Amino acid sequence: MTFKLIINGKTLKGETTTEAVDAATAEKVLKQYANDNGIDGEWTYDDATKTFTVTE
Rank of each mutant, 00 (worst) to 15 (best):
N8S: 06
E19Y: 11
E42A: 15
E19A: 12
T17G: 05
T16K: 15
E42Y: 13
I39F: 07
G38M: 10
K10Q: 14
D47E: 14
G38A: 08
A26K: 00
T51W: 02
T11F: 11
A26H: 00
E15S: 12
T18A: 11
E15Q: 06
A20L: 03
A48L: 11
K50V: 04
N35D: 14
A20W: 02
N37P: 01
T44A: 08
G38Y: 07
D36R: 09
V29Q: 14
T18M: 11
V29T: 12
F3A: 01
T17C: 07
E27I: 15
N37D: 03
G38L: 07
D46E: 09
Y45D: 01
T2M: 12
Q32R: 14
F3K: 00
T53H: 07
D47H: 11
E27G: 07
K10H: 14
Y33K: 03
I7L: 09
L12Q: 11
D40T: 13
G38Q: 09
V54H: 01
G14E: 12
T25I: 06
D22N: 10
K13E: 07
K4A: 05
W43V: 02
N37C: 05
A23D: 06
G41F: 03
D47L: 07
A23I: 13
K10D: 09
Q32E: 13
D22F: 03
T44W: 08
E42G: 06
K4R: 12
A20E: 05
A26S: 02
T25W: 07
E27F: 14
D46F: 04
I7Y: 14
E56H: 05
T16R: 10
K28T: 13
Y33G: 02
N37T: 08
K13F: 12
K50E: 03
V29R: 13
K28P: 05
E27A: 11
T55W: 11
I6A: 04
Y33D: 02
F3V: 02
Y45P: 00
T25D: 09
A23V: 14
G41K: 01
T25F: 09
A26M: 02
K50F: 11
T44E: 10
A23K: 13
V29A: 08
L30Q: 00
L30D: 00
D40S: 09
A23C: 06
G9Y: 09
K50W: 07
D46M: 04
K10R: 13
D40P: 05
K50Q: 12
E15A: 06
I7T: 04
N8A: 10
D47C: 06
F52K: 00
E19T: 15
A48E: 14
T44D: 08
T16Q: 08
K4S: 06
